[in-house]
Computed example of a mutant assay.
Amino acid sequence: MDLRHQTKEERVADYLREGIISGRFPRGSKLKQAELAEMIGTSITPVREAIKLLEAEGFVLGSSHRGAVVAPFDMNATEEIVDLRVTLESKLALAAIRRLTPETIRELRELQGEIETAAAKGDRDAVRVVNYRFHETIYMAADLPETLRFVRILWARYPFDLINKLENRIERASSEHREMLAAIIARDEAALLSALRVHIRAGWDEFKAEYTG
């Protein structure tokens, strides 16, 4: 992922966004600006601005002086979110496959290797982190920043943390990523869209069946 053109607050926001999706910052937990600034090694100002960005996306609630809280999960809204994810992420993937450089494809290969290693070890937290980086790397290449912004808003409302706890889900996710990567390497747009849709819907369908079962 090319971070050279990101502002300091955008880099901090990306760090926090990844941390929320990966579960490093659990739902309902408080984000304390001073602690985050010390953790990241920056001043409070970019942390404050980053939290405002994440509040606008829906990852956190209340960025006032009283502090921000990682937003909770809403089961009732997720079915629509899944459909929107498929639509918007398919758009990003289609644009990205036409623009991915050999360097970015090498990066995706490395990320896939990390996913498979983490899945083999049963390291759920690592799989979630690399899953985020894998998708973000593809979608950044699409060069459709407004579409990506809306996708991040959807991610903020999606239960990655709960889906990740399903039995053998990380192994299945690793396999689904392998299918996406194979389509990317082959520059096969139809195969990529099919693999992406399967990946997005599979986790939700598995979770929904267990959640309501």
Rank of each mutant, 00 (worst) to 15 (best):
L148N: 08
R109L: 07
A96L: 07
A95C: 11
E55C: 00
N76T: 03
E80G: 02
E57V: 06
A56P: 04
A142R: 03
A68Q: 11
A126F: 05
P145S: 06
A95P: 02
R85L: 15
P72Q: 04
G113Y: 10
E57W: 10
L92V: 11
P72D: 09
A71E: 02
R66I: 03
L144I: 02
R106G: 10
E55Q: 00
R128K: 13
L148R: 14
Y132G: 03
S90L: 01
I97A: 10
A71V: 05
H135N: 05
A71R: 09
R124Q: 12
D125F: 10
E57D: 14
K91A: 07
P72C: 10
I105K: 04
R98D: 05
V60W: 09
A96M: 01
R99W: 01
D74A: 09
V70N: 02
S63W: 04
P72G: 03
F134T: 12
D123R: 07
G122Q: 03
L94W: 07
P72V: 08
V70G: 03
E116F: 13
A119C: 11
A118W: 04
T137R: 13
L84H: 04
L108N: 01
E146W: 09
K91N: 05
Q112S: 13
V60L: 05
D83E: 04
K91T: 13
T117S: 14
G58Q: 12
R124P: 04
I97V: 06
A68F: 09
T104K: 12
A119K: 00
T117D: 07
F59N: 10
V60C: 03
V127D: 04
A77T: 05
L92Y: 11
L84K: 15
E103Q: 15
V129K: 15
D123K: 12
T87H: 14
T117N: 12
K91H: 07
F59Q: 09
T117P: 12
V60R: 13
A120N: 08
K121T: 09
M75W: 15
D83Q: 02
A71I: 03
E79P: 01
Y132A: 11
I81Y: 05
V86Y: 10
E110P: 03
A56R: 02
F73M: 08
I105L: 15
E116I: 10
T147W: 09
V130K: 07
A95R: 14
G62R: 11
F134R: 14
T117G: 15
E57T: 00
T137Y: 00
G122K: 00
E79R: 08
I105C: 09
N131I: 02
T78Y: 08
L100K: 05
L111D: 13
A93I: 11
A71T: 02
G67D: 13
V130A: 08
E146G: 08
N76W: 01
R109N: 06
E89Y: 06
K121V: 10
E114W: 11
E80N: 14
L88S: 04
I138V: 01
Y132N: 02
A126Y: 05
A119V: 03
A56S: 06
G113I: 05
T137F: 11
E146Y: 12
T147I: 15
R98G: 01
F59Y: 04
V82C: 07
V130E: 12
E110M: 10
F134S: 06
E146M: 04
A71Q: 02
G67N: 09
P145A: 01
